[in-house]
Design a protein around this nucleic acid. Structure first.
Length: 568
RNA sequence: CGGGAAGUGGCCUAGUUCGGCUAAGGCGCCUGCUUUGGGAGCAGGAGAUCGAGAGUUCGAAUCUCUCCUUCCCGACCA
């Protein structure tokens, strides 16, 4: 490709509203342009990177026996009604009507469609299968952000495993796990597999692949000593046992005028770790109390996962007063109506002599023995891990890092195959519901994650495997015949050797060419100028280190080929 | 959806507080000359319904109202 013919609108300044490194650099480098919130145009450079990422994913999927499909992006309402997700997906699904008034939805993922195709499988002999596609997904995200990191329209590789039983699912899941690790290695992403919540997908278990980055949207709990890693939505920790001093035989009500916070109550003499914090939640319309220790934080996702609730929100002040009789700040779970479910965090199990709100403004209880005085419906893990708490495996203090979700794999089970009636006959002639897994990687998001983690003050530093071009031949003086002739020959030889080369034949100043090539992050640069050519020399610069070596014209092609092939 | 910020040539900004000449500057773009190994210099030039609509006023980028859009935090989210 000749730069003089290539559309690369580089910018000296990033748009004012860009914050994330990848967003700024992908826009400045002429890779992407925003059309509107959450929708980006891929410019030629961006599309090259995107497709190189996609090809790596495709390659690894094929290596585990995946078969590539391409399914429609627009789906009939009936299909999503069959799985129940027409209802449960809520506002996140784009929905529209065709001219005849038939309702359709834009696919957010393709479990239903693949399951419907799986109806044509009849025998266990056909299993297992791994089916995948790289297709555009549409999600009406409430808040698109950070350039390509969170968008409403994006290409995703989604694959689905079809097995006769759960042992088969485990094997397919492990294949994907390994394939994903290889993909991230080839993308030069340091992705941590972590235990994750399965959210709206349902299913028996899931693993997220997380890339640490300040632009990420998830928190990952990580042990610096052992291999423990978990999404904060799933993470647990070991905490010090609190020994309670003996309390009274029955709770005592005491006046706490004006005290509305844990902190204020602590100043009044009740340590936060000896308080019960009562959160009034509404789960699918039902009032539920979530009780955690005063110094702990409730994790809503844990609550949702445990209860399986679809709609979950804090109660409004009016609802709180209606059901508990007091305002937030004086709430407690002692003596509440028996029809209210009380979920308590396990860290409170066995605790006594606790302080909590009395459901009467300005009054609290002390001396509460939780097992004696509170009708706990279920002991569960509700609390959010904090940094510095101890690793559940090795007791080392934990750290929490922001991370980008680069991939997510699920053991789905039979939710979709059951709903759509996808089953096969086993060796005994018995009907078996197909056991499914689903596995996703967002292509554009991975591209952004790479940009996020491969940049310096000059711009992007793409890994060779996904760089828009592998080598740029920078011509210092295009009207110097010897220089241009030598550059053209090097360029042609590189192309002939299968190197993805670009020749910067623009009539521009050296500084502009250098700055542009560094901004767009081409891994290697061959600089050809009259100064060196008269001595038979060119320069070879490695973007990552910015080290430059003088190389004889006769050797430069081999030098570049070696560098590229080693890094691929 | 709650909170905050912002919309001025392709990009970055000034101007808005306290209304007043033809809306200013930098980058980029076009032409010419010079320059030619790190985003050049000089000269000339094109390019803006100041997010949209309504209103107040002799006069609106500036004040008022409504709407739209975008960004950030939270909620939400495979």
């Amino acid at each position: 490709m000749r730069w003089s013919n290539l559309f690369v609108p580089t910018l000296r300044d990033a748009p004012g509203d860009a914050e994330a490194v990848s967003h700024k650099l992908l826009v400045r480098g002429g890779f992407i342009r925003q059309l509107h919130a959450g929708h980006y145009s891929m410019l030629p450079l961006g599309w090259r990177v995107h497709e190189k990422v996609a090809d790596i994913v495709r390659d690894e999927m094929n290596l585990i026996g995946g078969q590539e499909f391409l399914l429609p992006a627009m789906h009939p309402k009936s299909l999503w009604e069959a799985s129940g997700r027409w209802q449960t997906m809520g506002d996140e699904m784009f929905r529209l009507e065709d001219r005849s008034g038939t309702e359709v939805g834009l696919g957010m993922t393709h479990e239903e469609v693949f399951a419907s195709i799986a109806l044509e499988l009849n025998s266990y002999k056909a299993l297992p299968q791994i089916w995948y596609q790289i297709q555009w997904k549409f999600r009406d995200e409430p808040r698109p952000k950070a350039g390509l990191l969170r968008v409403r329209e994006f290409a995703m590789k989604d694959s689905y495993s079809l097995d006769i039983d759960y042992a088969g699912l485990d094997a397919s899941f492990d294949k994907h796990h390994d394939a994903y690790l290889r993909i991230f290695e080839r993308l030069d992403l340091d992705a941590m597999p972590v235990e994750a919540s399965s959210g709206a997908m349902g299913g028996a278990g899931s693993i997220e692949f997380m890339v640490a980055s300040p632009s990420g949207e998830d928190d990952v709990v990580r042990c610096p000593n052992c291999d423990y890693r978990a999404n904060i939505e799933r993470a647990t920790s070991a905490i010090d046992v609190v020994i309670d001093s003996s309390g009274p035989d029955a709770p005592e009500k005491f006046a706490t005028p004006g005290i509305r916070t844990i902190k204020a109550l602590e100043e009044a003499g009740a340590p936060a770790s000896s308080q019960m914090k009562t959160m009034v939640m509404v789960l699918d319309g039902a009032i539920t109390l979530a009780v955690v220790r005063g110094d702990h934080q409730l994790n809503m996702q844990k609550l949702q996962d445990i209860t399986g609730a679809i709609d979950i929100r804090p109660a409004t002040p009016d609802e709180t007063i209606e059901h508990l009789g007091a305002s937030p700040g004086s709430l407690g779970a002692v003596g509440v109506s028996a029809d209210i479910t009380i979920l308590a965090d396990r860290s409170l199990q066995g605790r006594s002599n606790l302080t909590t709100g009395a459901n009467e403004d300005d009054w609290h209880w002390r001396g509460v023995d939780i097992e004696r005085d509170v009708k706990v419906s279920e002991w569960v893990d509700l609390r959010e891990v904090s940094a510095g708490e101890h690793c559940p495996k090795c007791k080392t203090p934990l750290e929490i890092v922001r991370a980008i979700e680069a991939g997510h794999i699920f053991k789905l089970g039979t939710k979709y195959s059951e709903a759509l009636g996808a089953h096969v006959l086993d060796a005994d002639g018995e009907k078996q519901t197909i056991v499914m897994g689903s596995y996703g990687i967002g292509i554009g998001r991975n591209m952004a994650a790479i940009a996020e983690t491969h940049a310096d003050e000059k711009g992007l530093v793409w890994p060779v495997a996904v760089a828009p071009f592998e080598v740029v031949v920078t011509v210092m003086k295009i009207d110097d015949e010897a220089t241009m002739g030598a550059a053209e020959k090097i360029y042609a030889d590189l192309l002939a050797a299968g190197i993805d080369a670009l020749i910067d034949d623009r009539d521009a100043r050296a500084g502009v060419k250098f700055a542009d090539s560094e901004l767009i992050g081409i891994p290697f640069r061959v600089t050809v100028g009259p100064r060196g050519i008269t001595n038979g020399q060119v320069e070879f610069t490695t973007r990552e280190t910015m080290e430059t070596a003088e190389v004889a014209v006769g050797e430069i092609v081999q030098t570049a080929i070696t560098a590229v092939t080693q890094a691929r």
